[in-house]
Amino acid sequence: MVRREFGFTLIELMVTLVVLGVVLAVAIPSFNDQIRNNKSMTLGSDFIAALNFARTESVKRAARVSICPSINKTTCATATDWAKGWIVFVDSAAADSATTPVIASTPGTILRYWPLTDPEINVAFAAAGTIAAGNVKSGQALVIPATTAVNFVRFSALGTLAKVSNNSTVTFKLHVSNCTGFNTNIVSIGVAGLLSTDYVAC
């Protein structure tokens, strides 16, 4: 009785590996793009949540509440450090327009902390100008007013945006490096403290 052996020949195995390599070469870049795009959109959502939290707390407490970039969870970093994380805190500054926030040492002053450690994250003030309609997801041109770079955003006791350094509005640009499509977030804070979000090309 003849016994048959079942398996792959060397040629069949090599062909299978070549096909698998081609599939992976096509799929992996697309998968990486999707990961970056999802991270970019999540970044925008988290920042909007932080801003809304600060505004809600200012109204609830009838007090000034600010958000600022922070590396150590207790103090504000510089205006170029927004990509390193944020804290929301009760701001003890003497006036809405005070150019320096005041974080008291009393317990409960720091309300929440958002740590950011991803080196691909970019958070900055959006450059003034007009973004062409073709580069905006809504299909409408987006006009961005000038924003003076500051290291905090303050909401008044009424939940309105405190005018600091002549900023009557503040606009941020948030994205992850090498994102694709309309996955850059443009987040604007109006004088009434209300937020608006647009999505533009990376």
Rank of each mutant, 00 (worst) to 15 (best):
V26N: 04
V26S: 02
V26C: 07
I28T: 15
I28M: 12
P29L: 10
F31C: 05
D33R: 12
Q34A: 15
N37T: 11
N38I: 15
K39R: 15
S40G: 07
L43D: 09
G44K: 04
S45K: 10
F47W: 04
L51Y: 09
N52E: 14
F53C: 10
A54T: 15
T56F: 12
S58P: 01
S58V: 09
R61P: 10
A62I: 08
A63Y: 14
R64N: 14
R64E: 11
I67C: 00
P69Y: 03
S70Y: 02
S70W: 06
N72P: 00
N72G: 05
K73A: 13
T74F: 00
T74H: 02
C76V: 07
A77K: 08
T78I: 03
T80N: 09
D81E: 14
D81N: 14
D81P: 02
D81G: 00
D81I: 01
W82M: 14
A83W: 03
A83I: 02
K84C: 08
W86F: 08
W86T: 03
I87Y: 00
V88P: 03
F89K: 02
V90S: 13
V90M: 11
V90F: 13
D91I: 13
D91L: 13
D91P: 14
D91C: 15
A93Y: 04
A93N: 04
A94Q: 13
A95T: 05
A95V: 06
S97K: 08
A98E: 03
T99M: 11
T100P: 11
P101T: 07
P101M: 10
I103K: 05
S105E: 14
T106H: 09
T106R: 12
T109Q: 00
L111C: 01
L111W: 02
L111P: 00
R112K: 15
Y113L: 01
W114Y: 13
T117Q: 04
T117F: 06
E120K: 12
V123F: 07
A124N: 13
F125W: 07
F125R: 07
A126G: 15
T130F: 02
T130C: 05
I131G: 08
I131E: 02
A132C: 04
G134S: 06
V136F: 10
K137T: 01
K137A: 13
K137N: 07
Q140V: 06
L142K: 11
V143G: 06
V143K: 15
I144A: 03
I144Q: 04
A146H: 14
T147C: 04
A149F: 12
A149Q: 09
F152W: 07
V153H: 00
R154S: 14
S156R: 04
S156C: 02
L158M: 07
G159F: 14
T160I: 02
L161Y: 08
A162V: 05
A162C: 10
K163E: 05
K163W: 03
S165M: 12
N166K: 03
N167R: 09
